[in-house]
Amino acid sequence: MEKVGKTTLSQLEQKMVTGQYVLFFSADWCPDCRFIKPFMPAIEEDFPQMTFLAIDRDENMDLARELDIFGIPSFVVYQDGKEQGRFVNKDRKTKEEVEKFLTNFTK
């Protein structure tokens, strides 16, 4: 998973012009984020057509605010620069829930 440093929405959108991306918002202090992180390599392996970007919410508060990311961990799917869907809430997410969400965007 590619870690994204401090960035702006404009910079991120330029990066995601073509292809399918999954933005994974989390923070080190978040227990629900720590719960899902060990499953992320398997999730990535199950969805090889998607590029996963890890975004530290605390390092990117302005970006999170612009994208209405108020709960973490959160997942946002982009296709060719346009948002396709999101799994955003403050609840713990299981591997199965994340994969069910991502399946909605496979071709």
Rank of each mutant, 00 (worst) to 15 (best):
Q79D: 12
V77A: 03
I43W: 02
G19V: 07
Y78N: 00
T103S: 12
M16P: 09
K15M: 14
F70P: 00
E83P: 04
L9V: 05
L23M: 09
E97Y: 02
E99Q: 15
V17Y: 08
T106N: 10
K100R: 09
E96S: 07
I72L: 03
M40N: 03
V4L: 15
E2M: 11
I36A: 02
K37Q: 14
M1W: 11
E59F: 07
K100Q: 12
Q11A: 15
D28A: 14
Q49Y: 12
F70C: 00
D68I: 09
N60T: 07
E96M: 01
E96H: 02
T7S: 10
F24W: 11
T51Y: 10
P38H: 05
K90R: 13
L23W: 04
E99T: 06
V98M: 05
P41G: 04
K15G: 10
A54M: 11
T106W: 07
V76G: 00
L63V: 06
W29H: 07
P48H: 08
K107D: 15
F24Y: 15
T94E: 03
L23K: 00
K90M: 14
E44Y: 06
E59N: 11
T7P: 11
D58V: 02
A54N: 12
L63T: 04
Y21C: 03
Y21Q: 04
K95G: 06
D32E: 09
P31I: 13
V98K: 04
K82G: 08
K100L: 13
R92A: 11
P41Q: 01
D28S: 14
I72S: 01
E13I: 12
Q11R: 11
A64T: 09
F101D: 08
E99N: 07
V76N: 00
K95V: 01
D46I: 00
M50N: 02
I55Y: 05
Q84S: 11
Q20M: 15
L67A: 03
R65I: 10
T94G: 03
T8P: 09
D80S: 12
F70H: 11
Q49T: 13
R92S: 08
M40G: 04
K15T: 08
R92Q: 13
V4G: 03
G85R: 08
K107T: 13
F75E: 00
R34G: 04
Q79F: 13
P38R: 01
E59Y: 08
Q49V: 03
K93T: 04
R92K: 15
Q14H: 14
F47W: 02
D28Q: 12
T94V: 05
T7Y: 10
D62R: 07
C33Y: 09
F105N: 01
F39R: 06
K82L: 13
P41F: 01
T51S: 15
V88Y: 00
Q14M: 13
V4E: 10
L23I: 05
L53A: 03
M16C: 10
T18V: 09
A54H: 14
E44P: 00
G85E: 08
D80A: 09
D58A: 06
D32P: 06
K15D: 11
D80F: 08
L63S: 02
E97Q: 13
M50G: 01
I55S: 05
F52R: 02
M16R: 01
D46R: 05
L23P: 06
C33V: 02
P31S: 11
L63N: 00
F70T: 00
V76W: 02
F75A: 00
V22L: 10
Q11F: 07
T7K: 04
F87A: 00
L9K: 15
P48N: 04
R57I: 07
D80L: 09
